[in-house]
Amino acid sequence: MPNRELSASQTPTIDDIDKRLLRLLRTDARMSITELAEHVNLSATPCARRIKRLEEAGIITGYYTQTDAEKLGYPLAVFIAISMDRHTAERFELFERKIQSFDEVISCSIVTGRSEDYLIKVRVRDMAHYEEFLLHRLNRIEGVAQVHTSFELREVLNRSII
């Protein structure tokens, strides 16, 4: 069987049926192959092949459960912009390793176009929880020089790209 893995510079061909499958899976990743096939007017076998091809190409990277943070007791979403004291590989590696150990952090990106180096999003129970996170964990990471906090009022949209 030929190797279908693509290099980082190659983009697989995605047609309208693939896009419809991805939208359906984004809405309900537990949908059966039979249900997916019916929605895109294919039989089950070609539909399954398409999904397998999307997985092998690295377009579908996994299936997961989306949870409601508020119902789990984490209603407060916070964006934190972080400036590092020095721009060295060691500082950034230490920060990134440490930030991954905090369960409250749900995303972390290194950014450009602003004075801060990182933008993270965290979920906390309340202001006391945020204060504990900020003062006793985030600010204690070696190299963190400054933090700027913004509180999310309401999430308007959160979806994957198709």
Rank of each mutant, 00 (worst) to 15 (best):
D28R: 02
S115Q: 14
N139K: 15
R123Q: 11
E104Q: 10
G113C: 06
Q100P: 05
L72P: 04
K121Q: 07
D85A: 12
E70L: 12
D85R: 09
P75W: 02
C108N: 07
S101I: 03
T65M: 07
I161H: 07
E116S: 06
M127N: 15
F102C: 06
G58L: 01
A57H: 01
A77Y: 12
T67Q: 10
H39Y: 10
R50T: 00
F79Y: 10
G113Y: 03
Y64M: 12
I106H: 04
A48T: 03
H129N: 04
S160C: 09
L21S: 02
E93K: 15
T88F: 04
P46A: 03
A37H: 03
A57D: 01
Q66C: 15
V78D: 00
A44I: 04
F79I: 09
R125I: 05
L22E: 00
N41H: 11
R91M: 15
F151V: 13
A29P: 02
A89T: 11
K98C: 06
C108L: 07
H87E: 13
E35I: 05
G73C: 02
D15F: 06
R91W: 13
I110E: 14
A81P: 09
L76N: 10
K71W: 05
V156Q: 09
Q100C: 05
V78F: 00
S43W: 07
Q10W: 01
R114N: 14
R26E: 14
P75H: 01
K52Q: 08
M84E: 06
V147C: 07
G58Y: 01
T13R: 11
D126M: 08
G73W: 02
N139C: 14
C47Q: 05
V156S: 06
L72R: 05
D28P: 00
S32R: 08
H39L: 10
R137K: 13
E155W: 07
L134V: 08
I162W: 12
K19M: 10
H87I: 08
I82N: 03
H148S: 14
M31C: 03
F95E: 09
L134E: 13
